[in-house]
Simulated scan of single mutants.
Amino acid sequence: MNDILIRPFRPDDAPWLVEQHGRLYQRNEGFDDTFAPLVERILADFMASHDPTREKGWIAERDGVRLGSIFCVALNGHTAKLRLFLLMPEARGQGLGKRMLNTCMGFARDSGYRDMALWTHESHRAACALYRASGWQLTGSKKVHSFGCDLVEQSWEIRL
């Protein structure tokens, strides 16, 4: 795993990120074609108006091949929001997710945030286990119908 670089997100990463989110979530979760456009809007907003001193994205890559992403954005003045955390299947189970999460949380802490929050789905069991092991607390859970699926949406928080 030492050969995997976690580097800053660049605008030319956006098409790959949209494609992978759409493809993986459709294949693994049964999401419909409304999900990738949502990711595209999130990235467009980030690129157009993020505050680089308090908001950042990262891409994990090995030998120029992208393996994942994670973003830290402002939810409000003291809470950061974790967004677009994605690991390609071939990169899972090697500790890279933990490394990326620690990078994001460390940036949030160093940027003056007191807390972090995230939104995910109960079906993302490995991610939820990582959050729990990293000290995050599940703060809410509700049944929703999103992206053409019946899901259980979860909210998580951590004090930095």
Rank of each mutant, 00 (worst) to 15 (best):
C72A: 10
F9V: 00
A91D: 11
E61T: 04
R99S: 13
S49H: 11
D33A: 15
R23Y: 13
F107D: 04
E122V: 10
A44P: 02
R114V: 08
A129H: 11
R10E: 14
K143T: 11
H145Y: 11
G106Y: 07
G97F: 00
C149V: 10
Q154I: 01
H21C: 05
H50Q: 00
I42S: 06
R10H: 13
P52M: 02
I70Y: 05
G22I: 03
A127Y: 07
L67H: 02
V152N: 08
R83Y: 00
R92P: 06
L75T: 05
Q94H: 14
E61D: 07
P8S: 13
I158F: 10
C72D: 00
G64W: 04
D33C: 05
W136P: 05
I42V: 06
R54A: 09
M88L: 13
G140P: 09
I4A: 05
G22S: 02
A60P: 12
K98E: 11
Q20H: 10
R10C: 11
L84D: 03
P52K: 01
H50R: 07
G106T: 03
D3V: 05
S111L: 03
S111P: 07
H21E: 01
K56F: 01
M105T: 13
D12P: 07
A14M: 05
T120I: 08
E55L: 00
R10F: 03
R62W: 06
Q26M: 10
S141E: 14
A117M: 12
Q137T: 15
P11M: 00
D12S: 13
A133G: 08
T139E: 12
E19S: 13
R125D: 13
V73T: 10
Q20V: 07
R132M: 09
T139C: 12
W119C: 14
F9G: 00
A126W: 09
S146H: 15
F107I: 02
L75E: 15
R41M: 08
L101H: 08
L24V: 04
P11G: 04
G112T: 02
V152Y: 07
E90L: 07
M105H: 06
D51M: 02
L82N: 07
E19H: 11
A127R: 09
A74D: 07
K98L: 12
G135E: 03
G140Y: 05
G97K: 04
H124L: 15
Q154Y: 07
R159D: 14
D115N: 13
D115W: 12
R41F: 04
M105F: 08
G106C: 03
D45N: 05
W119A: 13
